[in-house]
Design a protein around this nucleic acid. Structure first.
Length: 516
DNA sequence: CTTCCTTTGAAGCCC
DNA sequence: GGGCTTCAAAGGAAG
């Protein structure tokens, strides 16, 4: 994993929640990083071209990479408990009124310059990082040597000034702070990108300053109030302007005001109703009747979702863009494209998402100390036991197929069927699946650039036209011989995989476009 | 209405 | 510790 932590020591030193896989991902990126970094200043067009070249060179490993930008850990500044209460609230408002004047110059610039022309997703990433600045400040700051205070008081910046470490480090043009007098500012600076908040929503003031090239249909992970921070959903009377966590105050720390099920409770975005409308009704009922039995409350206990990992955050941000580019809406297809783009990201670009995910996990852990991913096990409808057993005992199961031929269970595709979960091609006595499977899209009737066949880190077939992944100005090279040499049969009856159908659909769209 | 598909990553479980 | 499974998001498709 990239050394995301600043390593500045102190209380934040133990904040390593990263996964070891992240390091592997970065190592795989290899030496192309220099080129990617060099090109990183280009716009969306660069992305497509880079993506194409990345796909071609995907398997090229490389040693060592540039260090990932240091990211402050979770060191917590301490505040005295005496600040709890209305006094602190009043102080917060007062401080917020003063806040704009305390904005550092870059933030001021951001406030005054909504026209930002950065990379295609940089804005949102940076925006998320702006909010990450609300996380515990780097312990290295040493501004709060006191012992770790309670959560809702733990991370307030010293003087209501936003922590700029992440901001400065990533040179984000976007400001974070939320002036208290937002409504007035909105009059002069109408929102340009009302839905900027894929990761964490920002204050309306910030949002007004944050141009967003991609519409953001998704609801914010951590919705904010129009006026500041996370106050709306996580009211924190003790929060100072720019305070990191207080607006995220855990329900259990809200002294009864935000406990799930409590009338005043406002759920964290990770808290998801067990069943949509019913959940809303449940909350509505809770607003009316507080005398429900404890058992009932338990039964209606909302589900706390897993924190999003880096790729999920990336998908959340980029989905709309891919949908717009490809005119596809099926998520399975979009996700394939996003997966390849993810691999094509530079180390630094991925590092941003890994860091976001790390913060996400850290925040989630603090919000829900007792929560475990196991809590949600079985909440999604599991496949039946019989089906599972059938899969594992089926000689054609990809699991057995991969095991038999020494393929990677996680990433290798089992033969030409191109399915991970159920190999429909391999049959007993048929011999080894031709794996790696054909690495160009021609098997799907799609021209495409060949993928590295022996790459241990990139076995997946390109099942979508390379045009979707590569720059239109740079047509992907075709490899006509490969598929014909392999002469792979289609998955065949009863049905071809949906992805194949989807690919065909995409190809048809592309053909029509070219014909036009 | 429910499940599947499809991706990567994190985490839990089992041996 | 390795291997496997489940879940996280998303929305169309299929059952």
């Amino acid at each position: 994993m990239p050394q995301l932590d600043s390593g500045g020591g102190g209380a934040g030193g133990g904040d390593d929640l990263g996964a070891p896989d992240e390091l592997l991902a970065f190592q795989d990126e290899g030496e192309e990083q220099d080129d990617k970094i060099r090109d990183s200043a280009a716009g969306p067009e660069r992305d497509l071209a880079e993506l194409k070249s990345s796909l071609v060179n995907e398997s090229e490993g490389a040693a060592g990479g540039a260090g990932i930008p240091g990211v402050p850990g979770a060191g917590a500044g301490a505040r005295g408990e005496a600040e709890v209460g209305a006094e602190a609230l009043g102080r917060e408002h007062a401080a917020q009124r003063l806040f704009p004047d305390k904005l550092p110059e870059p933030l001021e610039d951001g406030l005054k310059a909504p026209e930002c022309t950065s990379g295609m997703y940089k804005e949102t990433v940076y925006s998320a990082f702006n909010l990450l600045m609300h996380y515990p400040p780097p312990s290295g700051a040493g501004q709060h040597p006191q012992p770790q205070p309670p959560l809702h008081k733990a991370n307030q910046p010293p003087h209501g000034v936003p922590q700029l470490s992440l901001y400065d480090h990533f040179n984000s043009p976007h400001p974070t702070p939320a002036p208290a007098d937002i409504s007035q500012k909105q009059v002069h600076r109408p929102l340009q990108t009302p839905d900027l908040s894929g990761f964490y929503s920002l204050t309306s003031g910030s949002m007004g300053q944050l141009p967003h090239t991609v519409s953001w249909p998704s609801p914010p992970l951590y919705p904010l109030s129009p006026s500041c921070g996370y106050r709306q959903h996580f009211p924190a009377p003790t929060a100072a302007p720019g305070a990191p966590y207080p607006r995220f105050t855990h329900p259990s720390l809200m002294l009864g005001s935000s406990v799930p099920g409590h009338p005043a409770a406002i759920p964290h975005p990770a808290i998801v109703p067990p069943s949509g409308k019913q959940e809303l009704q449940s909350f509505d009922r809770n607003l009316k009747t507080q005398a429900e039995s404890k058992a009932e409350k338990e039964a209606k206990k909302p589900t706390i979702k897993k924190p999003l990992n880096a790729f999920m955050l990336y998908m959340k941000e980029m989905r709309a863009k891919v949908i717009a580019e490809c005119t596809l809406k099926e998520s399975a297809a979009i996700n394939q494209i996003l997966g390849r783009r993810w691999h094509a990201l530079s180390r630094e670009e991925q590092a941003k998402y890994y860091e976001l995910a790390r913060k996400e996990r850290q925040l989630h852990m603090q919000l829900y100390p007792g929560w475990s991913a196991r809590d949600n096990y079985g909440k999604k409808k599991r496949r039946s036991r019989e089906k599972h057993q059938e899969s594992t005992t089926d000689p054609g199961s990809p699991k057995k197929c991969r095991a038999r031929f020494g393929l990677n269970q996680q990433t290798d595709w089992c033969g030409p069927c191109r399915r991970k979960k159920k190999c429909i091609r391999y049959l007993p006595g048929e011999g080894r699946c031709p794996s790696p499977v054909p690495s160009d899209d021609s098997a799907l009737g799609c021209p495409g650039s060949p993928a590295p066949q022996d790459s241990p880190s990139y076995h997946l077939l390109p099942r979508f036209p390379t045009e979707l992944l590569a720059s239109p100005a740079e047509p992907a090279p075709t490899s006509p011989g490969l598929s014909t040499a392999l002469s792979l049969p289609t998955p065949g009856p009863p049905q071809a995989p949906r992805s194949t159908l989807q690919s065909t659909q995409v190809q048809q769209q592309e053909s029509q476009r070219q014909a036009a």
